[in-house]
Amino acid sequence: MQPEPILRVRGLKTEFQSAAGVVRAVDGLDLDIFPGEIVGVVGESGSGKSAMAFSILRLTPGKIVAGEVQFRGRNLLDLSEAEMERLRGDRIAMIFQDPMTSLNPLMRIGSQIGEALRYHMGLSRRQADGTAVQLLQSVHLPDAERRIHDYPHQLSGGQRQRVVIAMGISCAPDLLIADEPTTALDVTIQAQILNLISETRQRSSAAVLLITHDLGVVAQLCDRVAVMYAGQVVEQGPTTDLFANPQHPYTIGLLRSTPHGRRRGEPLRPIPGQPPRPGDIATGCSFAPRCHLVEERCHHQAPALLQLGGGRQARCLLREESAHESTP
């Protein structure tokens, strides 16, 4: 018996108006997230992974033109702006890539954390301060009692990201969306923050949607992975299966591209060509121009996301034989 997903995205399409015309950043995205799991969304720049996250929260500067975002049974796209505001930071929290720009430089960190607590949970200033200290302790910020009086610039990058995470979990959200939360950090600090995210999930049972370009981060942290390319999910499945037996040629290419554990002289096998620029229009499969398994039909026929069993999905015409009959 499958539990109900906490977030269920169907056919999401987001467009941006640019000088060159309409650019579709998210192009028919389907994604499920179940309570308590960490789902990784991997993709390269321009794959639409950030646009997707911002669309779920309805914070995108673009226009959501189609689809639905079911969160605990309600379609977020139907809510009023006021209802969305109550939800953001409370039931769904977001952690951004650059902790410096997501903190107000003119506000002490204690007040910043407290603001959400007072707004969403109606705490008094004193209660909020107390809770802020507890939260900062829970994200292992040393000296939390003193630190709440600091301004963001007095903290290091890793410490700032801890503060942002503390803010994110302050109202015990059901879903935490983390957009490249460790990309701006050094490796040893990244390891600390990844541990913290994993620990947070265990403690609070919040589901985490982790957006990253780093396959290593996904492999180490996520229960399930969705691989995005050109605004679509091209492959999806449990992390271990997907890494052991990737089905989509793009995923295969990505895994072959990493130099991890490869000895000197052993050539890498990169994906040829360039990722499509947002706004390029593909007639068939959007990966066809770079695909090593490409066939004639791939240039004309757009593949659907096929169910492969075992929770696996892939958007590739070549996998049709192995696809199951089941409907998405």
């Binding site: 290091s156 390891a191 981060v217 180490q220 991890h260």
Partner: peptide, 20 residues
Amino acid sequence: AIPLPDPTRREAIPPLESEL
């Protein structure tokens, strides 16, 4: 600290404490 792209090797080595 390098996250390996291999989910079968999730290292349990505690990361370095404290900041640079």
